[in-house]
Design a protein around this nucleic acid. Structure first.
Length: 156
DNA sequence: GCCAACGTTGGC
DNA sequence: GCCAACGTTGGC
């Protein structure tokens, strides 16, 4: 099983929104690298860190699961959608999505600043300079470190 | 294929 | 609102 981080602006779609709907088709990804992750590498059951971006408290806010293989994103054919792509056709779709299944909301936000301060996350893709990808691979080790940061560390 | 212009992302 | 970084577009 692989692990991923998926960004969402909470003003648009937050971890609470995902908790409410249960499963969300992850429409609107319009970046080739992110698309290729979904199309080529994501499998049903993969773990997802749900990340809030472009907000007052950027950070990891929940855990989800990939709930489908990649399939054609219907919004690319919808003229009235902000995600419409005139160069995409049903015979030759350009964009795909996966379904994302809510698992749990973290007990607190593990903030970006904390992630940056964690030496064991030095190689984490999210923290690399100029990173803009909305879907990023996470190693098992990084996954464990990040979720381990959720609870206050107890004394030894 | 180059590359300047432009648009978007996203933290601060 | 600013701005660094990066992806995309399109003229040549």
């Amino acid at each position: 099983m692989r692990h991923w981080l998926m960004k969402s602006e909470p003003d648009v779609f937050s971890i609470d929104d995902l908790a409410r709907v249960g499963v969300e088709p992850w429409s609107g990804v319009r970046n080739y690298q992110a698309r290729n992750f979904m199309r080529d590498d994501m499998r049903e059951g993969d773990g997802v860190l749900f990340y809030h971006s472009s907000c007052a408290q950027p950070g990891v806010t929940g855990v989800a699961r990939v709930a489908s293989a990649a399939y054609s994103d219907p919004t690319q054919f919808d003229r009235h959608s902000e995600y419409f792509d005139a160069k995409a056709t049903p015979d030759n779709p350009r964009w795909v999505l996966v379904d994302v299944h809510f698992e749990r909301k973290l007990t607190r936000v593990v903030e970006l600043a904390e992630l940056r301060a964690q030496a064991r996350l030095a190689d984490f893709a999210l923290l690399q300079r100029g990173n803009r990808l909305s879907i990023l691979p996470v190693t098992k080790a990084q996954w464990d470190v990040i979720l381990g940061m959720e609870s206050p560390r107890r004394g030894h």
